[in-house]
Computed example of a mutant assay.
Amino acid sequence: MRNGAHAWLNWALPALTIVAVLTLWQLVTVGGVVSPTQFPTMTDTMVALGGEFATGRLWPAVGSTLLGWLIGMVITIVLGLVIGTALAFNAFAQRSAAPVIEIFKAIPAIAILPLVILVAGSTLPMKVFLICFAAFWPFVIQVIYGVRSMDPIVLDTARALGVRGIRRFLAISVPSASPYLVTGMRIASAQALILSIVAEIVGGAAGIGRNILLAQNTGVIAYPTMYAYIIVAGVLGVALTGAFFLMEKRVMHWHESQRNIRASNKAGAA
């Protein structure tokens, strides 16, 4: 019985929180605390969102944003795994690359947007480049830390058994570093989505960001549509983050961290 109540609360509390926030939004705008012309009511925004669904303008925008996010994430993960693993196994290369990584990690991706637009224009490659530039550095750092955290005994055993090259990378390096890799992917995912939408707003590439900009430029009458797309962007971010948490739970069920979480949940439900 207690387990059922605990599970119900896990679902009910987030839903009640969302309802409370939407209700407060409506009361604040209807009550005149803020100007409805600058901050439309919740009901007007939801009507505008429904209109975007009905006209079919929403899904192409979401698809364009997700396409840039997906391509950028694939490139970031592949390059990050290869380069990060190579640096982790070579101390000299890691010391040489560390200043470069720190310098580029500190450069805001938005700062190079004008240059990228000049070279690539308001295109998908422009958006993908910005995503990779922002997401690669934190991810490659996680890869380096993850590979370097491997148990030396595991490496010695692999060498003794003749496990080398790609086989060692796939069978030993990736599983051993997986907690760091999953954390790096979550960080990279958030960076990728932010840069995808920023590139659309500032650079004019197709997607949610460009629809936000177009609604803003249309004037006050389109502000509910602008806020509707902002909500869509937020929901998309929550969905992607939740997907990575779910992936971590499923893929890493064998890892000690997940076993500890399950044990803690069982103790709390008891």
Rank of each mutant, 00 (worst) to 15 (best):
R167H: 12
V235D: 02
A206Q: 05
A215G: 08
G234T: 04
V251P: 01
I230T: 11
V235C: 10
N217R: 13
A228K: 00
M247C: 12
G204C: 05
N217Y: 09
I230A: 11
L240A: 12
A160S: 15
A206G: 02
F169T: 10
Q216D: 10
L193T: 04
I197P: 05
L214P: 00
V163P: 01
Y227V: 04
P175F: 03
V174A: 04
V174L: 15
R167Q: 11
G234S: 09
P175V: 07
S196R: 05
V238F: 14
I166H: 00
Y227L: 06
L181C: 06
V238P: 01
L193K: 02
A171R: 10
G242D: 04
L214Y: 06
F244C: 07
Q191E: 08
G234W: 05
E256V: 13
A215T: 03
G237W: 01
G207C: 08
A188K: 02
F245E: 11
F245I: 11
M252K: 06
M185L: 14
F244R: 02
I221P: 01
L236E: 06
V163R: 08
Y180C: 05
L161T: 07
E256G: 00
L214K: 02
R250G: 10
R250M: 14
S189R: 02
A171H: 12
I172G: 04
V198F: 06
G209C: 05
V232G: 07
L181R: 01
T183C: 00
I172V: 15
S176G: 10
V232N: 07
L170A: 11
G162V: 08
S189T: 09
V202N: 01
R250E: 11
A215V: 03
I194Q: 04
A205M: 02
A243T: 14
Q191A: 14
V235N: 01
Y229C: 05
G242E: 11
G237N: 05
T225A: 12
I221Q: 13
T218K: 07
N211R: 14
P224S: 12
K249M: 06
I212Y: 06
T225R: 12
A206L: 01
L193Q: 04
V220Y: 10
T218H: 11
E248M: 03
I221Y: 14
S173F: 00
A243C: 13
M185Y: 03
H255D: 13
Y229A: 03
S189W: 02
A188I: 04
K249E: 12
H253P: 00
W254L: 10
W254I: 13
F244Y: 12
A228G: 15
G219W: 13
I208D: 02
N211C: 01
I172F: 06
V174C: 06
A228Y: 09
E256T: 12
I208G: 04
G184V: 01
R168C: 09
Q216F: 12
L246T: 14
S173T: 14
R168K: 13
S178H: 07
K249G: 10
A206E: 07
I208V: 15
A206T: 01
E248N: 12
A190R: 07
A160N: 15
F169I: 09
V251H: 03
L170P: 02
L236C: 11
I230F: 09
H255C: 04
E200P: 03
I187S: 09
Q191T: 02
Y223H: 13
